[in-house]
Nucleic acid binder design. Structure first.
Length: 928
RNA sequence: GCUCGAGUGGUGGAAUUGGUAGACACGCAAGACUUAAAAUCUUGUGUCCAUUAGGACGUGCGGGUUCAAGUCCCGCCUCGAGUACCA
């Protein structure tokens, strides 16, 4: 019996738990290192082989850091609130808490088998009241703060109230829903309720009537990142726009800081780019256009202030407040009909029919503040109410959408920019607008002859001087809608008094989620919490019926891991000062515009209010790739029960049928298992090739319906956890998406067996020599120490596995069983294959865990060679090799090359023009 | 449309700063051991030409820079991801 992975893994997993090997505490004598995985939502399907990829990588890194003397925090928990459990509850009546608990146990069982070094004493569940206590607490803090644009941070609402009392809004520059103008006297004359209403305009957590993404199928509103292409991310149901009174978080207040913070963190460029695009900063000008025969002024935002002389019409969003005000009586009917029509179109239809030009004239005219010209005001649904001011100045000559609109409604087009290398032409002949930002201004009065950037600057200067506008920065980032009309989520710590929201006292937290009999909305259309009995505060005031969204619980969980049992604070000062922030965060890129924005916002808020010491929560972030499925097919001849092998399939009319990948090995079908797989195939016939049935394959999403789901438990059963860990790493670069393919797993399993055999003789007795290792043996080890140390730091785990294979192959060839070498190898291997390493370590005579061994120290002296084998190339093509002493001079090398036997053929009849010698790299002879 | 990333053998992939393209593994082929199978071991395996020796070609395509390009520059093609009437 050789390498018995089952016995070894069971034994050590038990031993680790019993000895609390992975428990961590604050230890001021050692430097800290915090490695975090994005915690999973425990779905009913359990883990498939793709889920642990990132967990294995972070586990390796954690163990590596521990071996290097760091005190490593590596926790795990569950994002336990969520839609699937609730939907299951609606269908079956089963309480989501029960389903969740069941799924969670299954996850734990699967995770335990892989041998992770989590400190389970720090486990977090977002649905646990002792955890969501602090989610509710943070919400209260946000309600009690506003964002001061001058100090660039959150400040208490009391200080704002004080300012309003003293000076009104005069000196206030803050993030708000709407810019208000009030004197102190006006403020002081308001009733308490009116004042509360005004304060909602400033609070960081606020209640407002707002256009929301309403998903009728799910019966709830969704945040922007939960909607893609007009469909809900979960379930793919249509989403419509609707005005509702909802809780929001003023995330937009932090736009600039969220953007700037990206420069301080070590994330991939692509992820930073996704966030930058999502925040969507654009610098431009806000300009006021007076409306003819009216006191109304239209505010518009533009990034192309230079083209203001090319404006030939204005367009309002259908939802704009100005639309009804600017509609003249004789156009009223037409405009109202248009508004009705646009309202009926769903967001999805609107997006699908991007090319369809629609709009209607209001009858009003605006006056161009620069040229004084009168320009018609239209309504069109290509202008969005939610961006900028909900109104645009249309420059059909230089904007594609404006151009289409102008052509469709026969509005004038003026050229004001001549692109580089072109002449001015008649716009009537154009097929498209000229959107280029490089060119020279014409038809633009005082801007004529300037370049576009010069003209933008000059226009901005001009409008400021004349007070017709100002330089303005716009962000695409919206405030996060924070209410969900669901049951399975955190209750808001909010009650209503006189219809105004009030915060539950902090001493009454956590406000626990009540039990209800049915998980559906009430007959009156209230959220499910409307069914809860006694859902009132202090026996008098109704509590909020909405619950918080999924991202609430995941926004500050990394802080809670630092101090998970603290019942007086989210995180205690001592714990926060020791653990500080996450040094390495590993998770999927799908959280780029959701969780990773919200939790950065949440953290910055807590930083502003002095509850945490770091402005950015995640120092380094790595996105592991997605593991796709690799499906297998069998080919049935149509109308028969006969299957033909891959090669022959084109000779017949066949249908490809998905076959369970677990009964296929290296694309060879196990025919007996296939017959038993489905009664339909019991009597199937086969046409083989070379005695085997070869299946076809395709890369598809890993899903039950494609029969391509591979369960880690099965792999562990057949090969062991160490093989699974190594194989997942060996598959390719961590960050790359790739299909799961079990084909190569034999290779890494063989490697582990080969490693085992270095330590044991034929009879499986340990056989270690205490002799001094040879030069070759030392070289093999130290080469590997260097390679592994460097590659782990670069998260290049696949090349680590290769390096181990090379090392073990070399040591096997050298028949090495020297203690010094094998001990070094064992500690190097420990982060990757902890079970076998632990077993070998104990067999080597150690009584402590290999986790606390020393990371081997690389000594360059073992790699020093006296000669180097130079590749010799002629005109860039490698022809032969020549051994030279490393200290050989260039002239010695030149002589040796010229007189070398193999060189004669290449030198014959040619002149050596040059010889390039790169020390310890290459020799290139230029001949001709 | 815009932004970002990637294209290397039959397959997964390696080549970290321009310096031997294809490490390591899978698969395949031949052989050893065995009654047989498994396991293990040995050898070969980019393509084409050549019995061999050897040679030509070769990192999506077309150019360029360089003694030297998978790697740098210019122009394209294909695939993937993100995002979108964002003014």
């Amino acid at each position: 019996m050789d390498y018995n992975f089952k016995a070894i893994e069971t034994k050590w997993q038990k031993q680790w738990v019993d000895s609390k090997l992975y428990k961590v505490d604050i230890d001021k004598n050692r430097p800290k290192f915090y490695v975090l995985d994005m915690f999973p939502y425990p779905s009913g399907a359990g883990l498939h082989v793709g889920h642990p990829l990132g967990y294995i990588a972070s586990d390796i890194y954690s163990r590596f850091k521990r071996l290097n003397g760091f005190n490593v925090l590596h926790p795990m928990g569950y994002d336990a609130y969520g839609l699937p459990a609730e939907q299951y509850a609606i269908q079956t009546g089963q309480h989501p808490a029960i389903t969740t608990e069941k799924n969670l146990e299954r996850y734990r069982e699967q995770l335990d088998k892989i041998g992770f070094c989590y400190d389970w004493d720090r486990e977090i569940k977002t649905c646990d009241p002792s955890y969501y206590h602090w989610t509710q607490w943070a919400f209260i803090q946000m309600f009690n703060h506003y964002y001061n644009n001058v100090s660039q941070k959150a400040e208490s609402i009391e200080s704002l109230v004080e300012e309003l009392k003293q000076n009104g809004t005069k000196n206030i520059d803050s993030a708000c829903t709407e810019k208000l103008e009030l004197t102190a006297d006006e403020w002081n004359a308001k009733s308490e309720k009116e004042q509360e209403e005004i304060l909602l305009n400033y609070r960081l957590a606020y209640l407002a009537d707002t256009m929301v993404n309403w998903c009728p199928a799910l019966g709830t509103v969704l945040a922007n990142d939960e909607v893609k292409e007009g469909l809900s991310v979960r379930g793919g149901h249509p989403v419509e726009q609707k005005v509702m009174r909802q809780w929001l978080l003023r995330v937009s207040a932090y736009s600039e800081r969220l953007l700037n913070g990206l420069d301080q963190v070590d994330w991939t460029d692509s992820l930073k780019e996704i966030q930058r695009n999502w925040i969507g900063k654009s610098e431009g000008a806000e300009m006021k256009f007076k409306v003819k025969d009216s006191d109304i002024e239209m505010d518009i935002f533009t990034t192309r202030a230079d083209t203001v002389f090319g404006v030939t019409f204005m367009v309002l969003a259908p939802e704009s407040e100005l639309t009804p005000l600017l509609t003249k009586p004789e156009h009223k009917e037409e405009v109202e009909a248009y508004l009705q029509e646009t309202k009926k179109r769903t967001e999805r239809e609107r997006q699908a029919e991007v090319d369809k030009v629609t709009g209607v004239f209001t009858g009003s005219y605006a006056i161009n503040p620069l040229s004084g010209e009168e320009i018609p005001i239209w309504v069109g649904d290509y202008v969005l109410a939610g961006y900028g001011t909900g109104a645009v100045m249309a420059v059909p000559g230089h904007d594609t959408r404006d151009f289409k609109f102008a052509r469709h409604f026969n509005l004038p087009i003026i050229q004001v920019v001549v692109p580089e290398g072109e002449e001015a032409t008649d716009p009537a002949t154009w097929e498209d607008s000229k959107d280029s930002k490089a060119g020279t201004m014409i038809n633009s009065d005082f801007l004529n002859g300037l370049s576009v950037p010069e003209a933008i600057a000059k226009t901005k200067e001009y409008i400021r001087e004349k007070k017709v506008g100002d330089v303005q920065v716009n962000y695409r980032l919206r405030d996060a809608i924070f209410s969900r009309q669901r049951y399975w989520g955190e209750p808001f710590p909010v009650y209503y008094k006189d219809n105004m929201p009030q915060m539950v006292s902090e001493s009454d937290l956590p406000l626990e989620l009540p039990d209800i009999d049915k998980f559906l909305p009430t007959e009156q259309g209230e959220p499910p919490l409307g069914r809860a009995k006694n859902w009132v505060y202090k026996d008098a005031y109704p509590l909020e019926l909405n619950t918080m969204p999924g991202f609430a619980g995941s926004s500050a969980y990394y802080l809670r891991y630092m101090d998970p049992k603290n019942d007086t604070a989210l995180v205690g000062k001592e714990a926060n000062e020791y653990w500080q922030d996450v040094d390495l965060y590993i998770g999927g890129t799908e959280h780029a515009t959701g969780h990773l924005i919200y939790s950065r916002f949440w953290n910055k808020f807590l930083f502003d209010t002095g509850h945490v010491i770091k402005d950015e929560p995640y120092k380094k972030l790595i996105n592991q790739g997605m593991i796709q499925g690799r499906s297998n097919f069998v080919y049935r001849i149509n109308g028969t029960n006969k299957f033909v092998s891959l090669k022959q399939k084109d000779q017949y009319e066949t249908t490809a049928i998905h076959v369970d990948v677990n009964i296929v090995s290296n694309d060879v079908l196990d025919i007996e298992k296939f017959k038993n797989w489905n009664p339909e195939y019991k009597d199937a016939e086969f046409e083989l090739e070379d005695g085997k049935y070869i299946c076809g394959w395709a890369i598809e999403k890993m899903s039950k319906s494609m029969f391509n789901v591979v369960n880690p438990d099965d792999i562990i059963e057949d090969y062991g956890a160490d093989t699974l860990r190594l194989y997942e790493m060996f598959l390719g670069p961590l960050e790359q998406s790739k299909p799961w393919n079990t084909n190569g797993i034999d290779g890494v399993h063989k490697f582990l067996r080969k490693t085992w055999r270095l330590f044991f003789d034929k009879d499986n007795n340990i056989s270690i020599s205490d002799e001094k290792p040879s030069k070759e043996e030392l070289k093999a080890l130290h080469k590997t120490i260097k390679k592994i140390s460097d590659d782990i730091e670069h998260f290049s785990f696949n090349t680590c596995v290769s390096a181990f294979m090379i090392c073990v192959n070399e040591l096997t060839d050298l028949k090495c069983n020297k203690r010094e070498i094998l001990e070094g190898l064992t500690s190097l291997l420990a982060p990757f294959a902890p079970h076998i390493a632990e077993e070998l370590w104990s067999k080597l005579g150690h009584s402590t865990s290999v986790c606390d061994a020393q990371w081997p120290v690389f000594e360059a002296s073992h790699l020093v060679e006296s000669t180097f084998s130079y590749p010799v190339s002629f005109n860039g093509k490698m022809r032969f090799k020549i051994d030279m002493p490393v200290d050989a001079s260039n002239s010695e090398i030149e002589e040796a090359v010229k007189s070398h036997e193999s060189a004669q053929k290449w030198l014959e009849g040619k002149k050596v023009r040059k010889m390039i010698i790169v020390p310890k790299k290459i020799i290139n002879v230029v001949v001709g």
